[in-house]
């Protein structure tokens, strides 16, 4: 186990280093923020002076090495757009993203898992087909459109919920639904497969033959055995949620990392983009390791040291 974790750590460091290097250089192919910072009337000399002040006139390698030197000291640099340390900016946005991801995960699990169970228990019937169509339908519309429809219905017409921005709990409801609908089908699918899998096993058949009720069977045995693949999926689904958050956070003016990523990319706030991507890579790596460990629990035949990648 320790050897496995150490190797994973080494690989993770390598991956994050690769991601950062790639991001550092390809971002700079797209120019720099100087033009966005200055008024249109700025002259060429003004532009050059600003570029110099921001340090973007230095050779790329010099910029890269100074970035790495800072990184080693856990300094992610400073945003030239917001005039703040990158860690402060990310720190202020992270709680909102965690809230939204939590809300979305809650929505998708609370709806998706029970639906998956129902679909599995009614396997092969028209009812199950209709249900699965509905579940899939929920993820077949782009969130930038379903989001605004949710706002218009629940905030503008009915007035039940606030239309946008962060605030109390009620502000979290609509964006969580918009984002959660995307993952709902995944959870329903995995639950359904897991339950069908369990249903075909010997102990279930025996129990049913002995006359154990279906409801009892689900809550007592199936739920526990099917929960492990679900946790795995939940861990992996988090990175999908973070990707979907870019659009959802923009539509709902939710001040999380998704909106920050989008704005920083557009405004060429290189340091912030690097910080967000680093965090994303870290989360992805950690989730992968967690998934691996969970696999080894589900299926003892897989030993962690033997498992490649």
């Amino acid at each position: 186990m320790t050897r496995y974790l150490l190797r994973k750590l080494g690989e993770a460091t390598l991956v994050m280093f690769g991601v950062l290097t790639l991001i550092f250089f390809i971002q700079r192919l797209t120019g720099d923020p100087t033009f966005l910072l200055l008024p249109e009337t700025a002259t060429q000399a003004d532009i050059e002076a600003m570029r110099h002040a921001l340090g973007f006139d230095r050779p790329l390698m010099v910029q890269y090495l100074s970035f790495l030197a800072d990184l080693v000291r856990f300094d992610l640099g400073r945003s030239v757009i917001q005039n703040l340390p990158v860690t402060d900016i990310i720190g202020s946005r992270l709680p909102y993203t965690l809230m939204l991801a939590g809300g979305a995960l809650a929505v998708s699990c609370l709806i998706g898992i029970p639906l998956g169970v129902v679909m599995a228990l009614n396997h092969g019937t028209t009812f199950a087909t209709v249900l699965s169509s509905l579940v899939v339908a929920a993820q077949s519309l782009p969130t930038f459109w379903s989001g605004i429809i949710l706002i218009l219905i629940f905030a503008v017409s009915l007035g039940w919920l606030p239309p946008s921005s962060a605030g109390g709990f009620s502000h979290l409801v609509l964006p969580s639904i918009a984002l959660g609908l995307l993952s709902m089908a995944t959870f329903a699918r995995v639950t359904r497969t897991a339950i069908l899998d369990e249903l075909s096993k010997e102990y279930v058949r025996t129990a049913r033959a002995r006359g154990v009720g279906m409801g009892r069977l689900v809550t007592r045995h199936l739920a526990r055995n099917a929960s492990i693949p679900l946790i795995t999926v939940a861990a992996l689904e988090v990175s999908n949620l973070l990707a979907g958050a870019v659009v959802v956070e923009t539509v709902f003016a939710w001040p999380g990392l998704g909106q920050l990523t989008m704005q920083s990319i557009v405004s060429r706030d290189f340091m912030v983009v690097q910080g967000v991507v680093l965090l994303g890579a870290f989360v992805t790596v950690v989730l992968n390791v967690m998934a691996d460990i969970l696999y080894s629990i589900v299926d003892p035949r897989i030993t962690l040291s033997a498992r490649p990648s």
Binding site: I148, I151, L152, A155, V156, G159, P162, P163, S164, S165, T250, V251, F252, A253, P255, Q259, Q263
Partner: peptide, 18 residues
């Protein structure tokens, strides 16, 4: 002063009196 990047959302905020 709030930041609401999407124009359709700004419109919704106005109509919902937010």
């Amino acid at each position: 002063f709030r930041a609401v990047p999407d124009a359709a959302t700004r419109m919704a905020n106005l109509q919902a009196k937010a």
